[in-house]
Design a protein around this nucleic acid. Structure first.
Lengths: 151, 151
DNA sequence: ATAAATGGGACAAGTATTGTCATCTTCGGC
DNA sequence: GCCGAAGATGACAATACTTGTCCCATTTAT
């Protein structure tokens, strides 16, 4: 019941891309260094993100990766599901007949409700907002630190 | 990002106990048969549930398990957390410094919101309600079947 | 004592996670 | 056309987790 490192790294990388002007190409090695992500592992993940067409990759010299769509149209849910597959909180939500009683079991209904809400929240903010908010918050914190050190 | 079989089995067993009059003792082997749960595996799970004091077990002849508290005061969240540990959707919610930027990262905030809501829903109905609703729904379905077969 | 019930530890097969590494493919520039 | 830089891909591996199984210990009513 937890996000994997793959998902975590994918979100980090996508947030990074979302802070850049749309269309900017950046190299995987740079993202890797900046966010402490094992480079070869990140390559696997970016390949998945490219497969889901969240990013576009370009080989060769001066190549790299960039967002396929503007970050305003992307959410954390998109990113997580791109690398981890669709979210199913409970197995009985995936396959019929998993639980011998799923026809009438009301726990099933509860899990479904929880799943809907989870997805709703994970897609309630787009990556552009998240990236902007994060940059803003960071600036605030850094400024507060400078003031205290100056005082 | 999914409930384990352990959690699934635990919920099944607890729902079963919640359908019985409070205080009823039932044997693990019975629950196992009724819900298609491997008996020895279920023993491990019930031991955990007993450790969390959700159920009380009694050894020896005529022994078995029973709810420690009335099902009105228990939720699916209680059961899941008893056997799987506290729910943390994202690792950065567990330990400080997991993510190099968790101080200002707004994705962190989003995961936190999602986690709160998930827990809220999983504890929005108590086991007594869920058990009663399930029995009712089951009766409805069975009745509907009898009517169609009679017609 | 004995039979019936849970508890607990050792073990094991299978799968998922989290990588690493070597090699291949693609591309721009000379 | 060649070279070097970049991502793509597949094989491999260490580790942990999941999902059990099995055996024996412990408890308890009779």
């Amino acid at each position: 019941m937890q996000l994997t490192m793959t998902g975590e790294y994918a979100v980090r990388a996508m947030i990074h891309l979302s802070t850049l002007p749309f269309g900017t190409i950046i190299q995987i090695s740079e993202v890797s260094k900046e966010w402490n992500i094992p480079e070869n592992f990140l390559r696997k993940i970016t390949a998945q993100l490219a497969g889901a067409d969240l990013i576009t990759s370009q080989r060769g010299i001066n190549g790299g990766i960039r967002l396929s769509r503007p970050p305003e149209s992307l959410t954390v849910l998109d990113v997580v599901e791109a690398v981890e597959g669709k979210i199913f909180l409970n197995k009985c939500l995936i396959c019929d007949g998993f639980c011998p009683r799923d026809e009438w079991c009301q726990v099933h209904t509860l899990w479904e409700e929880a799943q809907v809400k989870l997805k709703e929240i994970l897609s309630s903010k787009n990556l552009a907002q998240l990236a902007a908010d994060t940059l803003k918050r960071r600036a605030e914190i850094l400024e507060a630190r400078q003031q205290t050190s100056a005082a």
